[in-house]
Nucleic acid binder design. Structure first.
Lengths: 218, 218
DNA sequence: GGTTGTGAATACATTCACAGCA
DNA sequence: TGCTGTGAATGTATTCACAACC
């Protein structure tokens, strides 16, 4: 009786969920190289992760391997894609079309993975209707309306930091459930919103902690 | 005798180091708002982190607060900056001047935090010596030479994924100790290299795991 | 022989709770 | 009284190690 969780099995740790996309990526590459089977040991070698961790991670979701042989890559990939919900397309909108926003909207890596930017917003009229392929830039007033109309579920925030929190609030009200935030702030959102932050400065600042000793030689 | 670690005190957990830059950022903002003192409870409120965690994190490095009052923001900031090694300038170079690379080199957020991009490399001759302020674009052959000459310690990788690992190898050989990798690969580097990856697709793919249930209503 | 899947053991991280101080 | 700093307790994540199986 120590377990007060509901019958919904063991909760999957968040770190595990964050590793699954890494597995998906390497498995896709292997498949392209016409490799069909791989062991947890080989995978671990490629990813610098212990084989035990890979097996344990996968075991939260099912039994995908064969003893003595390893994992069938195509099968495991299909399963992982379904688990992650990336076996289908997701509609996203982009807010902010400064240099960063334009780099994001032109980034060719999203759509092959099923993330489609179907709307873009900016309050700077000078940016409207510039050359962005099929997408028409709209005023930020229209976020709520367009998000609902087009049934968009992900918002990508690329506005200056002083506007970011209010954009996030708007997105939340509009019914979006996932936010990819590029603004260098500590964003606030209700618990049901899934937030991910992209913040190179924070990455650099935690990097130098480990670099400063080595450097004292110079 | 259970402790086989060296006398070098308790190892600081990596997660703690990654939170310190977040503290630095919010403390800087508070200081700009002319706030001088803050308690762990107030900080936790702003960052959605428990006060106990903040106090524990800080306690790895010293005793920065005053009982009954809280933390002096300016003092704590100075200490944290020194701990992280961001109380001085760091020289970085950028490799890859495609759309992403150009967005990075024009990003105004690095230099105020002391990260200065002092060299840029690309093998596409068409990109050389375009309008990039004081920086002259060099061929990638020159990475090793320039890194040593200018005493650069951080490499920012923004080349296509098929070139990324070889660029990383070159940077490592050149004596760089920190790498910020924007290429969507699982990079390999020796253990003494500090690597950080910026990978929005992985972020999105771990996001949808938590979004897919909610969405079944639609 | 080789490899998975998984309980048990260990290691790590967070939170509690309170003594000690301003 | 209010808040820090920190051991102890709890909660999470990783690794071990081996039975089960191909």
């Amino acid at each position: 009786m120590q377990n007060n969780k509901t019958i919904t099995q063991v909760e999957v740790p968040e770190v595990v969920v964050q590793r699954l996309p890494i597995y998906v990526r390497i498995l896709s590459q292997l498949l392209e190289s016409h490799i069909e089977i791989i062991s947890s040991h080989q995978l671990g070698e490629l990813l610098q992760i212990t084989p035990a961790q890979i097996r344990k991670d996968l075991s939260y979701f099912g039994r995908f391997g064969k003893q003595g042989r390893g994992y069938n890559i195509q099968f495991l990939l299909d399963e992982l894609r379904q688990i992650l919900g990336i076996d289908r397309a997701w509609k996203a909108c982009l807010i902010g079309l400064g240099r960063l926003g334009r780099a994001i909207i032109n980034y060719p890596g999203f759509s092959p993975e099923g993330f489609e930017i179907v709307a873009a917003f900016d309050n700077n009229v000078a940016q409207y209707n510039s050359n962005l392929g099929t997408i028409t830039v709209q005023s930020m007033d229209e976020i709520a309306h367009t998000v609902k109309e087009k049934n968009i579920s992900i918002g990508i925030v690329a506005v200056p930091s002083n506007q970011a929190q209010s954009v996030i609030d708007t997105l939340v009200e509009s019914g979006i459930t996932g936010i990819l935030n590029y603004a260098p702030i500590a964003p606030f959102a209700p618990k049901h919103i899934v937030m991910r932050n992209i913040d190179p400065v924070l990455s650099l600042q935690s990097m130098t902690f480990y670099m400063k000793e080595n450097d004292e030689i110079n």
